[in-house]
Amino acid sequence: TEHYTFHTEEQAQRAAKKFKKQGLPVTIHEKNGKFTLQVN
Rank of each mutant, 00 (worst) to 15 (best):
E30H: 10
I28S: 01
G23F: 03
G33F: 02
T5Y: 10
F35L: 03
V26D: 00
K31R: 11
Y4D: 03
F6R: 00
Q11T: 05
E2C: 15
F19D: 00
Q11L: 08
Y4T: 04
K31V: 13
L37F: 05
A12D: 00
Q22V: 08
K34H: 10
F35H: 03
E10D: 07
T36D: 06
Q38F: 14
Y4M: 08
E9G: 04
K18H: 12
N40W: 13
V26E: 00
T36G: 05
Y4H: 06
K21T: 08
K20S: 08
K34S: 08
A15L: 06
K17L: 14
Q13P: 00
V39P: 03
G33T: 01
P25E: 15
R14C: 08
Q11E: 14
L37D: 01
E9M: 15
E10S: 07
V26A: 05
N32E: 07
L37E: 00
N40R: 08
H29Q: 10
E9V: 12
H7P: 11
Q11Y: 04
N40M: 12
E2S: 12
F19M: 06
T5R: 06
E30L: 09
K17Q: 13
T5Q: 07
E2W: 15
K21W: 06
T8V: 03
A15D: 01
F6A: 01
E10H: 07
L24Q: 05
G33Q: 03
E2G: 12
A16D: 00
T8L: 04
K17T: 10
K20N: 06
H3A: 10
N32R: 04
H3I: 14
Q38N: 07
F35T: 02
E2K: 14
Q38E: 14
E9W: 15
K18W: 15
E9K: 14
H29T: 14
H29F: 14
V26K: 00
F6D: 00
E30F: 14
F35S: 01
A16Q: 04
K17F: 07
H7R: 09
Q11M: 08
R14T: 08
E2H: 15
V26C: 09
Y4W: 11
H7Y: 10
F6T: 01
A15P: 00
Q11S: 08
N32G: 07
Q38A: 09
T36F: 14
G33N: 04
E9R: 15
N40V: 12
N32V: 02
N32C: 12
A16P: 00
K20F: 09
N32K: 04
H3Q: 12
L24N: 04
H29L: 13
P25Y: 15
L37I: 11
T36S: 06
L24R: 07
R14I: 10
A12V: 05
E10G: 07
A16I: 05
